[in-house]
Design a binder for these strands. Structure first.
Lengths: 337, 337
DNA sequence: TTGAAAGCGCTAACAT
DNA sequence: ATGTTAGCGCTTTCAA
């Protein structure tokens, strides 16, 4: 391995100084076209590759944004990440990904790691476990942009991009009611995450305006996963006054619910099932799953925009915007009574 | 925003020098327990957070590994990433993700970006478009570990982790034959990627040892996606001597094939369908999809191990190991004649 | 056990 | 248009 070329090597080669080289390479205007060209030529010949670490250390800007998500395995988050990248790429910002795997501990470690890596800002969606948010506060203290999306906390006064989750819960419920379902159960998470509470409230509201009773025994609080869906459905089947429809906390949970229902020959839409997130598989399972589209691509795009705006301001938290997207119902077979 | 605390602030506070602070913080042995403790106390009090950029610049090690994958949206790659993280975390290495989105151009940009960010090594799975591999050569020239997984190139003499893809193709075919299928078609990619060629060769071999003819008109070379699967199945249906089973290049393609077959009432297993990768949805579609498990978790773990071994050696390319995993057939309804 | 000092590769204010 | 120079925050050799 030959030692890496630096701007000093280029400077020596051309008998000029490093500052000239630096300027030539970074597109500084006040420089003669001929020097610029020769610098670029020599750089190419010596196979020069800039050390962004050094430049970042000096300039204080890494052009890297940290993104923290519960998991990339959910199509929902994968899509958001994709559009964040898309929305950022023209401005030269890159992202570095950190997965919390739904653990606060990992999330705290993530914030720490990203901050130590001197990222220029952080975008995050919280883990299910997250109650306490002081680790995020540190980002704000450093006056670096923090943007929360989807799973946010009201304790943090930062720009956010979310779905109107109350409305999402309302629409999902109203859709079931419109299809003729009446005894509607809800299988959701036990964790105190705002968006899940909002959805539940939306559900209550829809039941109320339609003069339908909410059977509190049919609100199942557990986890969100295929397994939890099976379990939740099982409990509902064993209870009195069986529901005729089930709203599941997300599409994975809905999948578990459906599996359980199939086993006891109550294949949807015999019992209606609707989920949230419009996962990749939801259109392809049988029966296909009705769900609520949360517009991940729009979310990612908005995150990117908010970030770009924040770094333009002298104080990123001068003008805190909270973007709220409207959910869309995706009607499929599982609710097609 | 108060200025960030540095080791100088801590040093001043305690009337010692930065070198002592640095040593105290990095677990240097020859230091008195009392100084170490007071340094740690003050660091905490001043809310010190190390600048890894500076430390990396000086030490030449970022403890970051770049990972390049075609897309995180495929469960297969998401699983690999997850186990790479898992396998690396005890050694203090973090990963930064780069998606090529199946474009060579992006892939080249990815290598460049990661190298400029001074990552300590790179793990990559190539885009479908990649033929020319000189951009990867640069990593080797810098004497940094490069590990290729799944989609590799024989042009690069580096450690690899792959599936025995010849065997995968063979087993998939043999499975169909064992189920009683005889006229077996293959829908795969037009791109010259080794693993896809190997699978095709495995298929040919299995047909041969079973004395079954290969109908060259029933080898469809196109893309790999739901859309491509539909298209491929369509072409096969319109041809003479319709196949009684179809091997699809991956599970997404298989999904497209199944959708098309359902439309014409040839629901698998009436026509057998098998895919590759055991995607998340494959168990849940109807009929559930038989597929080839490529052991992504094992792959990720092996990548991490190879990397850890490479950085331990003085020359990372001293002892090039090529790990080959054995595929496993996952039998489901789509081939259950 | 601790200190002094050089320097990683780059940028940018100031000077010419 | 180009040069000089002082760091960014840290690690590490050498000396004490």
């Amino acid at each position: 391995m030959k030692k890496k070329t630096t701007i000093y090597d280029i400077a020596k080669e051309l008998n000029i100084t490093v500052s000239t080289v630096s300027r030539a390479l970074s597109g500084f205007p006040a420089i003669s076209e001929s020097t610029r060209q020769s610098v670029i030529d020599v750089a190419k010949r010596l196979n020069y590759s800039p050390n962004k670490l050094a430049s970042a250390l000096k300039s204080g800007k890494t052009y890297i944004v940290g993104v923290i998500v519960p998991s990339v395995q959910a199509h929902f988050f994968a899509s958001i990440i994709h559009s964040i990248e898309e929305g950022l790429k023209d401005s030269g910002y890159r992202i570095i990904l950190y997965q919390s795997n739904e653990s606060v501990e990992n999330e705290i470690k993530g914030v720490k790691t990203l901050l130590e890596a001197q990222v220029d800002g952080i975008m995050a969606s919280m883990s299910l476990e997250t109650n306490e948010v002081s680790h995020f506060q540190e980002i704000i203290n450093q006056n670096k942009p923090l943007i929360l999306f989807d799973r946010i906390s009201p304790k943090l006064k930062v720009p956010t991009v979310t779905l109107n989750d109350f409305r999402a819960g309302f629409l999902a419920t109203q859709h079931l009611i419109d299809q003729g379902y009446k005894r509607i159960a809800f299988v959701t998470t036990i964790h105190q995450i705002q968006i899940f509470n909002d959805r539940l409230e939306g559900y209550r509201e829809a039941m109320k305006v339609n003069n339908l009773p909410v059977n509190e025994a049919q609100l199942i609080f557990g986890g969100l996963s295929i397994k939890d869906g099976r379990y939740g459905a099982g409990r509902l089947l064993r209870g009195d006054n069986m529901p005729d429809a089930i709203i599941a906390g997300d599409d994975f949970t809905a999948l578990g619910v459906i599996k359980k229902l199939k086993e006891v020959n109550l294949v949807p839409p015999k019992i209606g099932v609707i989920g949230f997130a419009n996962e990749a598989f939801s259109a392809y399972i049988t029966p296909s799953l009705s769900t609520v589209d949360q517009h991940p691509n729009q979310m990612g795009q908005d995150c990117a925009e908010l970030f770009l705006q924040m770094i333009k301001q002298d104080n990123p938290y001068d003008d805190i915007r909270n973007v709220i997207l409207e959910p869309t119902i995706v009607e499929r077979q599982s609710t097609e009574l």
